[in-house]
Design a protein around this nucleic acid. Structure first.
Length: 506
RNA sequence: CGGGGUUUGGCGCAGUUGGUAGCGCACCUGGUUUGGGACCAGGGGGUCGCAGGUUCGAGUCCUGUAACCCCGACCA
């Protein structure tokens, strides 16, 4: 008689019971979702495609936001706030713009609910129909330019350098936590300038800020470049982008900056009197990064044990764990260490919870990506040592308590640097200069990463390449030097002037 | 918009031919433990997504319906 198995466990339940996560190799997409959930960054909400950003996840976003905000202000921008709702008619004023966004707009049609016929439910009050329907902003160019029209009269009003932190809604068909959600948080800068050159310089400057931020804070190397016309923002003359590479070999557009030419100025009649008393249209830019950066951050550094965070964006940089549990002597020493660390501006958490044991805490903070862990027990106190573990390499060793703050400070710098070096090496290794179609296909289908290839400059060819391989033109990079090769299009063999980075992308 | 999946305690799940709901984690109480996810004993907590129907009886069968997730076509 077969023994009855009392312990039915599916793979999934076992996974959660043991608090393990799906490995990248097994299923990259599930690995990503596991990290988002188990590091407690965000949850799905009951609203399709929308997410709840949890405190730990939001703390990371706040660090990104604060640093970017600081840099925006340092370059002369001011924050303002424009409405969530945009009159429907505004969107249609710029032809390319409406084409780009019309398919994914949420529309407000009524302004009142009433109790339904059953006396319990709530229904839309049909008598409360809006005269003009409102759309929930997918981006704010239109309402902002309609406002700028009143703000800008003279060259003395320029440049106008405004940023706003806001939520926007794009009704996407397919969503993924942080990477593409129906509602997301972002900043959008909108500037007006007297000259074309100045606007272009502004757009480039902001892309530089994004790229530097990615490098210096996210430890994420990116390619800066110009989008092909086909990939341009709807309503822009030029779109600049930073493109990052995720660990699965797919590219991720991490931020964009647009030179809008005079398109919105003309659509919304935004003119200024120049020094010669002549009316001119202003030149415009817009630029933004979103909570998508969270996804980029997660997929840049994390491993099969969980989240890995660069120290500069970690809400907790150092966690101290008493071994086996807090006591007076340990508490006193920890207070001393914490104070020394805080004096250096390091964020420290002392986990003196007595309900969980050290092993549990170790695993938990690894899952959540805390860069440095200190463990202090009686043995350490006796020897004047402390155990220090780094999340990025998982190295663990015992070091002297003397100058521990200096040691940790240096280690945090080293971790930040190591993460960047590793990501840079990966980007380098997975950027392939290709000169034949066979090589191109090999990169896209087998190797993963970027294929840097000549392209004849036509949208037709770009679309063909996408249909054949799923690879899209990510950008024409600004500073990626390679051997020239034959200047013919990878697909058509037609004369080409410019190489383009192609990749499968998020 | 297609294809698949899920919906049962706070979380993750099981529930056989319909017979009055269970397991792990978490939580509460007590005790023993403690240098890598502790253990024992006791305890609290669920009108099984929603609406109908079949039946003496429905988590289970039937018919609707809703929500969310995942995989593909559009997009930051």
């Amino acid at each position: 008689m077969p023994r009855k198995n009392y312990f039915y466990t599916t793979t999934k339940s076992l996974k959660f019971m043991s608090k393990e996560i799906t490995s990248q190799e097994e299923n990259y997409s599930e690995w990503y979702l596991d990290i988002v959930k188990k590091a407690q960054l965000a949850d799905n909400s009951k609203v399709k495609g929308c997410m709840v950003i949890k405190p730990y996840g939001f703390a990371i976003w706040e660090k990104m936001r604060d640093e970017l905000d600081r840099q925006f202000k340092a370059t002369g921008h001011q924050n303002a706030y424009f409405p969530l709702f945009i009159p429907k008619s505004f969107l249609s004023k710029e032809a390319a713009h409406v084409d780009g966004f019309a398919k994914e707009c949420a529309v407000v049609t009524h302004h009142r609910l009433k109790v339904g016929a059953d006396g319990k439910s709530v229904v839309v009050d049909e008598t409360a129909k809006l005269e003009e329907e409102l759309i929930v902003r997918p981006t704010s160019e239109t309402i902002i330019w309609d406002t700028y029209k009143d703000w800008i009269k003279s060259y003395r009003d320029l440049p106008l350098l405004i940023n706003q932190w806001a939520n926007v809604v794009r009704w996407e068909l397919r969503t993924r936590l942080f990477l593409r959600t129906t509602e997301f948080l972002w900043q959008e800068g909108h500037t007006a300038h007297a000259t074309e050159a100045e606007a272009i310089a502004e757009a480039r400057q902001m892309l530089d800020i994004y790229a530097d931020f990615a490098r210096d804070f996210m430890a994420m190397p990116v390619y800066k470049g110009t989008k092909t016309p086909n990939e341009r923002f709807a309503g822009a003359d030029d779109t600049y982008t930073i493109e990052a590479l995720m660990q699965d070999g797919k590219a991720l557009q991490a931020g964009t900056s647009h030179f809008l030419g005079q398109n919105f100025a003309k659509a919304f009649e935004v003119t200024f009197l120049n020094e010669n008393n002549k009316n001119e249209y202003v030149w415009a830019t817009s630029w933004g990064v979103s909570t998508r950066l969270m996804g980029a951050l997660i997929m840049s550094h994390s491993d099969n044990e969980g989240l890995v965070l660069p120290p500069k964006l970690a809400p907790i940089q150092v966690v101290i764990i008493p071994i086996p549990k807090p006591d007076e002597a340990i508490d006193a020493k920890v207070a001393e260490i914490s104070q020394a660390l805080r004096k250096k501006g390091i964020t420290v958490k002392y986990d003196n919870d007595t309900k969980t044991r050290p092993g549990f805490k170790f695993a938990e903070y690894e899952m959540r990506g805390v860069p440095v862990r200190l463990a202090l027990g009686a043995r350490d106190l006796q020897n004047g040592t402390i155990e220090i573990a780094r999340r990025d390499t998982k190295e663990k060793k015992s070091v002297s308590l003397e100058n521990i703050a200096d040691y940790v400070e240096n280690l945090l710098v080293e971790i930040q640097d190591n993460l960047y070096q590793k990501a840079s090496q990966r980007l380098k290794d997975r950027t392939h200069t290709v000169n034949t179609w066979e090589e191109f296909v090999d990169v896209v289908e087998n190797k993963g990463g970027f294929a840097y290839a000549y392209w004849d400059g036509t949208t037709e060819t770009e679309v063909k390449i996408k249909n054949l391989t799923q690879a899209t033109a990510r950008c024409m990079p600004w500073d990626l030097e390679v051997a020239e090769g034959t200047k013919t299009c990878i697909l058509t063999g037609a004369p080409a002037t410019q190489r383009v980075l192609f990749a499968k992308a998020y």
